[in-house]
Amino acid sequence: MKRTIPLLITGVVGTVLVVAYFIPHPPFDSLREDFSIFFDIIASVAFILGGGNLIRMHGSRISRKESNWPYSVVTVLGFLLTLFVGLTKLGNPNGFLGSSVTTSGSYFYAAYEYIFRPAAATMFALLAFYVASASFRAFRAKNAEATILLLVAFIVLIGRTFVGELLTSWLPDSLHFLTIPYLVEKIMVVLNFAGNRAIMIGIALGIVSTSLKVIIGIDRSYLGSG
């Protein structure tokens, strides 16, 4: 029973959603809408599960004093404090029922604005340094393929700046096809299009076959049975 019911739900919901795409008429269209709403409700409840899982995982790490456990303390404290100031709307200028939890002036807003936001932006900004370092080490013309990759990366990098335009602006109109902006456009619109479309079609076919296996019940890995 523990396995049959989830398999049945998956099979019925999957089949109805596929059929509803091709026959958007009653009863399939309303069923699709209902299933989508069920999904949204489950997704909302998943936040509670996610929070519980976070506490459980980091709690056990702290109790066992595993490596880097002080970071887990920071995570749990950060989570609980944010949850507390968010649920109680602490410091909210218009009181508990007055306005949204994100109202300027509330503790929740302060936590977001002065801790989370700069920290997240800093983490993202660090990428620039790692990209520079990785480019220095990895973009080397070791063979023909690497040389092509290097040339393309070089053109796109330069072409993404004003310098790209400046470098080849002196070329006559008859040689327009050699200008860096033109080359960048062709790389992105022709080569990238073709490569990405091929990858996307491949992925889509893979998703179709995997989904069919799940709907039919051949693939049961989502039940934890492998």
């Binding site: 620039a128 990209v131 520079a132 480019s135 220095f136 080490r137 973009f139 080397r140 013309a141 070791k142 290097l150 990366a153 070089f154 990098l157 330069i158 993404r160 700046t161 004003f162 310098v163």
Partner: peptide
């Protein structure tokens, strides 16, 4: 733009030494 140019500089430098 300047960051891109510095990355381009490092790519050229890396390839010359290589």
């Amino acid at each position: 733009t300047i960051a891109h140019l510095s990355i381009v500089f490092f790519i050229i430098l890396g390839n010359i030494t290589f």
